[in-house]
């Protein structure tokens, strides 16, 4: 286990380094003067000059990158062109909204996906299994923003049961959670089913039955423990797809998270903000993936041996 953790831990800074390099290079590949781009089209010449010094544009590229990394580690991503506020503070204000939405979506995915996947495995090849699998493949195929629009149209516009846009009360969470949580729910249901089917065919289950243990006790005792692996895998390794999904879902619902901030920044060509949000989003995905891999290895010893 220690070797496995050490190997993964060594790879982590290399990935973060590469991600920051890609974000750094992408913005500097823009046609025109990078200082003008980062300071904004309306910025006075003095501000552009100050940006030129800050970016170190007279220096070799690797020194510019070094400066970028040092600033990023200090939490300094520059000033937003659109709001004139520090990028870091705007991200700090928006991130809790995205985090809360990710949590409610995962809660929905676990509360619906695990029982559905278990039911499908227990009633394998019978109608409950077929219905769950049909819904799971449909859930994995549907565009989450379309689902969001349809739900908005029905529950908010026609029935007036739920608020249409924005964040505030618990009611504001329902529609965005359904839109963002559908994909992980489908994935958890599919994975829970396949891992349950594998468990139910094991010898120890037969032994448990032979000892006279009831079906319900078997599912509760053995199956729930095995459902942990799909939950951790989907929650951890699919955090990236949740972040990606949040970009679109937040834009549909005017949700004040970092996903909508990114889309708005692209529209306004707010490059310091694009740089900051992208970097933080990807680094958080890398870290969550790393933690998930560790948790999966701790639950399932077979993985760390491969």
């Amino acid at each position: 286990m220690k070797t496995y953790i050490a190997r993964k831990l060594l790879a982590l800074p290399l990935i973060v380094l590469g991600v920051s390099l890609l974000v750094f290079l992408a913005i500097r590949m823009l046609p025109g003067d990078p200082a003008r781009m980062m300071a904004g089209p309306e910025a006075p010449e003095a501000a552009v000059e100050a940006m030129r010094v800050r970016l170190g544009l007279g220096q070799p590229l690797f020194m510019q990158y070094f400066g970028f990394v040092v600033h990023a580690i200090q939490g300094d991503f520059g000033i937003s062109i659109r709001s004139n506020l520090p990028v870091a503070s705007e991200i700090a204000n928006r991130f809790p909204y995205t985090f809360a939405l990710a949590l409610t979506s995962y809660a929905m995915a676990i509360l619906i996906g695990v029982p559905a996947g278990m039911a499908a495995a227990v009633f394998r090849n019978r109608w409950p299994d077929q219905i769950v699998m049909l819904l799971a493949i449909a859930g994995a195929s549907v565009a989450n923003f379309w689902l969001a629009l349809m739900a908005m149209n029905y529950f908010a516009v026609e029935l007036h049961w739920l608020p249409l846009l924005g964040a505030g009360s618990w009611k504001h969470y329902i529609l965005p959670t359904i839109a963002l949580g559908t994909l992980p729910t489908a994935l958890i249901a599919r994975m829970t089913r396949s891992s349950m089917i594998e468990v139910l065919s094991q010898d120890f289950i037969r032994t448990a039955r032979a000892k006279g243990l009831g079906s319900f006790a078997i599912y509760r005792k053995h199956a729930l423990r095995n459902a942990l692996i799909p939950i951790v895998t989907i929650v951890g390794l699919n955090f990236g797809s949740i972040m990606g999904g949040a970009v679109v879902t937040e834009s549909v619902f005017n949700w004040p998270g970092i996903g909508r901030l990114l889309v708005d920044s692209v529209r306004y060509r707010d490059y310091p903000m694009i740089e900051g949000v992208t970097l933080l989003a990807v680094v958080s995905v890398v870290v969550v993936n790393f933690l998930a891999e560790m948790a999966i290895a701790a639950i399932n010893p077979r993985i760390r041996l491969t």
Binding site: V23, V266, I274
Partner: peptide, 18 residues
Amino acid sequence: DILFAFPGIILAILLVSV
């Protein structure tokens, strides 16, 4: 691995913004 670390949509948005 670096490209894979990016959520697809976020990498695409970064590239399209450029």
